[in-house]
């Protein structure tokens, strides 16, 4: 899977979790928690959606370190 298809998959799942977010406002470097206001339930849902969609189980301890869409894309690109 290419980085760009990983990115669009992540953004699609993010919008499902937080429909009040706008896809156009999301970029690689924005911080999920501080800039997009994701809370711990949103993060839980994102980890769960990534696991279901991409089959990649991100351990909780790793997930806590991944703070932006860019971080997630790079992490998943290594695992995929």
């Amino acid at each position: 899977m290419t980085e760009s298809s990983l990115r669009s998959a992540i953004i699609e799942e993010l919008i499902k979790i937080a429909p009040d977010l706008d896809a156009a406002d999301i970029d690689d470097d924005g911080l999920l928690h501080d800039d997009y206001d994701l809370d711990s339930m949103d993060s839980f849902n994102l980890a769960s959606a990534i696991h279901q969609r991409l089959g990649i189980n991100i351990p909780d301890s790793d997930f806590a370190r991944l703070q932006s869409v860019g971080d997630l894309v790079r992490y998943l690109a290594q695992k995929a």
């Binding site: 696991h51 189980n57 909780d60």
Partner: peptide
């Protein structure tokens, strides 16, 4: 949580 798949974790 270390022993759970994402959907079964707790917050």
């Amino acid at each position: 949580n270390a022993g759970q798949e994402p959907a079964q974790r707790l917050i």
